[in-house]
């Protein structure tokens, strides 16, 4: 791994983090998100990524990822 990739950062739910996952699916696995549950959605750089595209969606330094869940609400 080069120095550049070691220092690569991305934003996850509003926090800067080192980028170690290659794809959205890898990121979800890294974060131990139970993707078998319903009610989860992901946006990359302000656009929703459908579940079927998580394994093939590459992550790049500077990307902004939102992982959300349906929760109780009024």
């Amino acid at each position: 791994m080069t120095q550049a990739t070691l220092n690569a950062q991305f934003r996850l739910n509003g926090q800067d983090e080192p980028l170690t996952a290659a794809t959205l699916a890898a990121l979800l696995a890294e974060k131990a998100v139970d993707t078998g549950q319903k009610g989860i959605a992901v946006a990359l750089n302000g656009a929703v990524v459908p579940r079927a595209e998580w394994p093939t969606t590459q992550l790049h330094p500077g990307d902004s990822v939102e992982i959300v869940r349906a929760r109780q609400g009024g």
């Binding site: 959605a41 992982i67 959300v68 869940r69 349906a70 109780q72």
Partner: peptide, 9 residues
């Protein structure tokens, strides 16, 4: 109704 919120990591 439901809300949509960032997941708790």
């Amino acid at each position: 109704t439901a809300s949509i919120r960032r997941i708790s990591l």
